[in-house]
Structure formats: structure tokens, C-alpha cells
């Protein structure tokens, strides 16, 4: 019969292969350190506190999306609608700040305060996720198709809200009591931007849910072996519904942060963000077939992508080359991932 090519590592002494495995396991971390070191050599201004803050702010937006995306991918699904949710949620928040909620029968307009704006915006994002989840679990639409459809619906709705134009100057008015929306994007605590604090909180909760709660366990089970999960009494549909809602919720946070940072909401904002989110999850070791991946890995993955794109900008590398490099890095990460799994398997069998 045909001969399988033995991987060199399988024949190498045990210690060598263990070391190699460890290196491969930490590959995202090593990659992060490598890109940071590389850019600090190539771009003199890269390692400064000010730049670190800027990079982190960029990373945070992608990281919010990537956290939700990780939950979805862990169940074996995908959510392509998150970028569009960013745009839609921004428009909803913008409209609420600028125009409030007109109640025509009473001839009054209610201006919700900033907390209420945020609450409504988060509800909108979660609702879009709910619809995704219902399409997938009740109507049996494939996640790729359901969320692709939602991508267009949400983006279209965002454009319809303003006829395609931007809602500018979302600072609110004292007489309406709705000031303060920009704080989310530009405020700081102890010199660190609010969005970073928020990321720490969201990532902390997400990691806790994923590793310590029955719900998290069920997410991994559904992705690992859906049938086994069903037969163990896990309500698979409820788990799937929930992860799309989580993803919509996380996308809404990102949408709010983006609109708040710009102090304006543009219906096209968030375009292709879903791809960056998927890339961050995959770079962080999440398997697209489900059941494997961690929130921590995803955060590191998001940082690799963020540092890479900002560093290349600072080096003056053209945008076109940036795209090529990003693509190579993502596919390279998956190749390393496959390598790690093969070596690990061989080490076990050996």
C-alpha cells in the first residue's frame, strides 16, 4: 500500500519533539513577540506608550468581535454578519442621540440618556444575533448562508436609516440630558482608554463562561460531537441560539465603541470586520470545524493582527502589501496548527 511519509519530528528523540510541540503550542504568543520586536527595530516610534494605547484601541474593536466569533466557531458555526451589526448598531445609537424616539401620537420626542442609548443598541445587536440563531436552529439554514443574508439585511438597514449619509456630532445636548456618548470611545481611567478596560471585562467574563460554566462546556461539546452532546441531554439548539446572540451582543459593543470614538456613525463602518474577527480566532488556535479554541488565544490572535497592520502602516508599507502579508500570516498559522496536531498525535501513538 502507499507509504505515509513519517514526519521528521516523529522520528526525532522524544525530548526534541516535546520542545517542538511546546513551541508550536505557543506559536501565537511567539508570533506576537516576534512582530513587536520586529517593528520596534524597524519603526523607531513603535514602542512608545502613546503608540501602545493607539494599537490597543484598534485591537479592542476587533477583539470584541473575535470573542463573540470564537463562541460561534466553537460550536462549528460561523457569523458573517458581525461587521454589518457594527454599522447598524452605530446608526441606531447615532439616531437615538441625534433624533431621540419620536412619539407622534403625543407629539413629543423622548431623548434617552446615554445609558439607555447603550442599552437599546446592545439589545438591537443581540436581537440580530437571535434572528441568526433562529434561522440556523429553527429553519435549518446553514450558518454561512444565514449570516451572509443577515450581513446584507443589517447593512442595508443601516444605509436606509440615513439614506447613506453619516450621523455627525454625536455629543448630545444639555437640554435633552443625553450628553456623554463620546466618553466611551475617548475616556480614560488611570490613563488607559475605557475601551481597553471594557475589553478586559468582556474577555474575562467570556473566558470564565467558556471554561468554568456548564454553558461553556456545552459549547465545546456541541462543536466536538453534536450527536454525543444531544445524547448527553444537551439542548443543542439552545446552545447554538445563545452563541449567535452572544456574537451579536459583542458586535454591538464594538459598534458602540466605533461610533463613540468617531463621535459619528457611518452606515458603512464595520465593513470586512467579520473577516478580521475570523482571522483573529483562527490565529489564536480556534478550529473552524469546532470544539477547539480558547478566548485567550483569540485575544492574542487579535493582537497579532492589530500589531501587524499598525506596524506596517508605521513602516510605510503600502496598504496592498499589508493585505498580502496578512493573508500569508493567517494561512501560515493554520499550517502550523495542523503541524502541531500531527506531531502531537504521532507523539501519542509513538
Amino acid at each position: 500500500m502507499t507509504n505515509t511519509v513519517a514526519t521528521p519530528a516523529a522520528e526525532a528523540p522524544r525530548g526534541q519533539s516535546t520542545l517542538l510541540l511546546l513551541l508550536l503550542k505557543l506559536r501565537t504568543f511567539i508570533a506576537l513577540i516576534a512582530v513587536v520586536v520586529f517593528f520596534s527595530l524597524m519603526a523607531p516610534n513603535f514602542v512608545t506608550v502613546a503608540n501602545a494605547v493607539i494599537v490597543s484601541k484598534h485591537v479592542a474593536i476587533n477583539a470584541f468581535l473575535a470573542i463573540g466569533m470564537t463562541f460561534v466557531i466553537l460550536t462549528g458555526g460561523i457569523d458573517l454578519s458581525v461587521g454589518a451589526i457594527v454599522g447598524l448598531v452605530g446608526m441606531v445609537a447615532g439616531a437615538l442621540v441625534l433624533y431621540g424616539i419620536p412619539l407622534e401620537m403625543f407629539g413629543v420626542v423622548i431623548y434617552p440618556n446615554v445609558w439607555e442609548v447603550i442599552g437599546i443598541a446592545l439589545l438591537v445587536g443581540t436581537f440580530v444575533g437571535l434572528v441568526n440563531g433562529l434561522l440556523i436552529t429553527r429553519m435549518q439554514v446553514a450558518p454561512f448562508i444565514a449570516t451572509l443574508g443577515m450581513l446584507y439585511v443589517a447593512r442595508g438597514t443601516a444605509l436606509l436609516m440615513s439614506g447613506g449619509s453619516t450621523f455627525p456630532n454625536l455629543i448630545g445636548k444639555p437640554e435633552f440630558g443625553n450628553q456623554g456618548f463620546p466618553t466611551l470611545g475617548s475616556g480614560t481611567i488611570l490613563g488607559i482608554p475605557l475601551s481597553i478596560w471594557l475589553l478586559l471585562v468582556v474577555a474575562g467574563i467570556a473566558a470564565y463562561v467558556a471554561t468554568k460554566t456548564p454553558f461553556g462546556r456545552q459549547i465545546y461539546a456541541v462543536g466536538g460531537n453534536e450527536r454525543a452532546a444531544t445524547l448527553s441531554g444537551v439542548n443543542v439548539n439552545r446552545v447554538k441560539l445563545a452563541v449567535y446572540m452572544v456574537s451579536g451582543f459583542c458586535a454591538a459593543i464594538a459598534g458602540l465603541v466605533v461610533a463613540s470614538q468617531l463621535v459619528a456613525s457611518h452606515p458603512a463602518s464595520g465593513e470586512t470586520f467579520e473577516m478580521n474577527a475570523i482571522a483573529a480566532a483562527v490565529l489564536g488556535g480556534t478550529s473552524l470545524s469546532g470544539g477547539r479554541g480558547t478566548i485567550g488565544g483569540t485575544i492574542v490572535g487579535a493582537f497579532v493582527i492589530g500589531v501587524l497592520s499598525d506596524g506596517l502602516v508605521m513602516m510605510g508599507v503600502s496598504e496592498f502589501w499589508q493585505m498580502v502579508i496578512k493573508g500569508v500570516v493567517i494561512v501560515g498559522a493554520v499550517i502550523l496548527d495542523q503541524m502541531q496536531r500531527r506531531i502531537a498525535r504521532n507523539a501519542r501513538l509513538g
Partner: peptide, 29 residues
């Protein structure tokens, strides 16, 4: 079951208690 119905990506313990986790306060496994 005749065919194995386990999640390969989870540990032995996690598989045994899948769907019937022992928790503290219903949240923390």
C-alpha cells in the same frame, strides 16, 4: 450506545458530566 458518543475534544471528566454538571450556584462547575 453501540457507537461511541463522546466528545473527543473534552476530557474524561468533562464527558462523564456533560449535560449533568455538578455546579456551585448553578454557574460554576
Amino acid at each position: 450506545f453501540q457507537e461511541l458518543n463522546l466528545c473527543p475534544n473534552l476530557t474524561v471528566t468533562e464527558n462523564i458530566f456533560l449535560g449533568r454538571d455538578m455546579t456551585r450556584g448553578g454557574v460554576h462547575i
